[in-house]
Computed example of a mutant assay.
Amino acid sequence: MDHFNRLVSEQMVTMEKLLYLQAELERCQQIEEELQNLQNETNLESIQNDIQSMKKELKEIQLIFEKQTEEVINSYREMNLTPSL
């Protein structure tokens, strides 16, 4: 019976280690997932900032292009209105 009790006691110790490691593994995996989500959010935020910056730059370039187009049109009109001598 002593042998049986010792085996059961050893098995209980092993079971405690097993349960502890399973719980720790699950906890670490949850932390890993949260960190990956945070990293993805950080990357997403960075990309969103880049997009906003590019949209702003695009709008500025569009305005410059529109002004240049107006200048080209006005210059062309002036050139055609001025009689050649």
Rank of each mutant, 00 (worst) to 15 (best):
7 L>R: 01
77 R>W: 06
23 A>I: 07
36 Q>W: 02
42 T>Y: 07
59 K>S: 11
25 L>F: 07
40 N>P: 00
57 E>A: 13
65 F>I: 12
20 Y>A: 15
64 I>G: 02
58 L>Q: 11
75 S>E: 05
40 N>C: 09
40 N>S: 07
78 E>Y: 08
73 I>Q: 11
26 E>S: 12
80 N>D: 06
33 E>C: 12
74 N>D: 03
55 K>W: 05
26 E>T: 13
38 L>M: 14
17 K>N: 13
42 T>Q: 13
45 E>M: 13
34 E>S: 06
60 E>Y: 02
36 Q>S: 10
73 I>W: 05
78 E>G: 06
44 L>Y: 04
43 N>Y: 02
32 E>I: 12
70 E>N: 13
77 R>G: 00
38 L>P: 03
43 N>S: 08
24 E>A: 14
47 I>P: 00
25 L>R: 13
67 K>S: 06
20 Y>G: 15
30 Q>T: 11
32 E>F: 10
23 A>N: 08
71 E>C: 09
31 I>Q: 05
16 E>T: 04
50 D>P: 03
28 C>T: 14
48 Q>P: 02
38 L>W: 04
77 R>Q: 07
33 E>W: 00
33 E>P: 02
26 E>H: 10
83 P>F: 02
46 S>I: 10
6 R>E: 03
52 Q>H: 14
45 E>C: 08
1 M>N: 05
65 F>T: 10
69 T>R: 15
11 Q>T: 06
73 I>C: 13
42 T>M: 15
